[in-house]
Design a protein around this nucleic acid. Structure first.
Lengths: 141, 141
DNA sequence: CCGCATCCGAGATGATACTG
DNA sequence: CAGTATCATCTCGGATGCGG
């Protein structure tokens, strides 16, 4: 695995892509990528995961303060979805002033790791994308 | 790098998450991950990339046939967006029956590689997610 | 303090008809 | 063949008020 590494990799990628799109379109496995993207591709899921991943656990309103611009409703909705998928753990303390702690599960942490990988790609290629947008902008806009 | 690999990695992830959420909220770099997700997180971009990545190049209607359920309009919109970001190359042949070929650029291929990584995570953890959904389903639904 | 229910506007998506 | 234009729809997200 020393020579033609790039070519080998390119072939593998193509095969992986083929495999993904050949899956029948009516199962959870339809496209694992699609499914994950539908989950974290919305407006707030990723930010929530990021914030939860940067600490051990956070209370509802603590999280609300940190995620600039999120509404109460969307924080609730987002956290519920993440909880449903086993990415976030919700702990309720039956105290007089209700207290609820949210934290990433092991599954959530592993997802965060994967997403940060994607983030590294994004950070590395952001200039190239920005340049492409500039160039197209002058022609089409 | 043999001992406490997991712990080290966990700390790195936490730091990476912190770094990402600390970026000021008004730049392209706001969150490279978010930006990429906004691009490929829509309904058709990822599927388009996947299909284009599984071959060398495809014509418009060829692609349309392969992406089940996409409308002509959305394919156009999606391809234009990907082209704007330099992920897809569009080649027009001025022939009598118009012919337009679409193909992934180098940038697009590298993104595909990153996405497939995420796909591997998704495929590996799909059972865990399905199980979590089941469990929550019985409680909440 | 935490969170749910309802209502509503904006943007994304889809169906259809028409053009180079 | 490869789009564009227009209209209808549909889901998401935000504002507000109520309940545990």
């Amino acid at each position: 695995m020393e020579v033609t590494t790039a070519d080998t990799q390119a072939t593998e990628i193509r095969e992986a892509a083929k495999k993904i799109i050949t899956v029948p379109p009516d199962s959870f496995a339809l496209c694992p990528v699609r499914d994950i993207l539908d989950r974290i591709g919305d407006k707030w899921s990723l930010l929530s995961i990021l914030h939860l991943g940067s600490t051990d656990s956070l209370r509802f309103n603590e999280l609300r303060k940190r995620i600039t611009g999120i509404s109460q409703r969307m924080l609730t909705v987002t956290l519920r979805a993440l909880e449903t998928d086993g990415l976030v753990a919700r702990t309720v303390y039956a105290e007089v002033p209700p207290r609820v702690e949210y934290a990433l599960t092991g599954l959530g942490q592993s997802l965060l790791a994967a997403v940060i990988e994607l983030g590294n790609w994004a950070a590395a290629h952001a200039p190239a994308i920005a340049e492409a947008r500039e160039r197209m902008g002058r022609v089409a806009a």
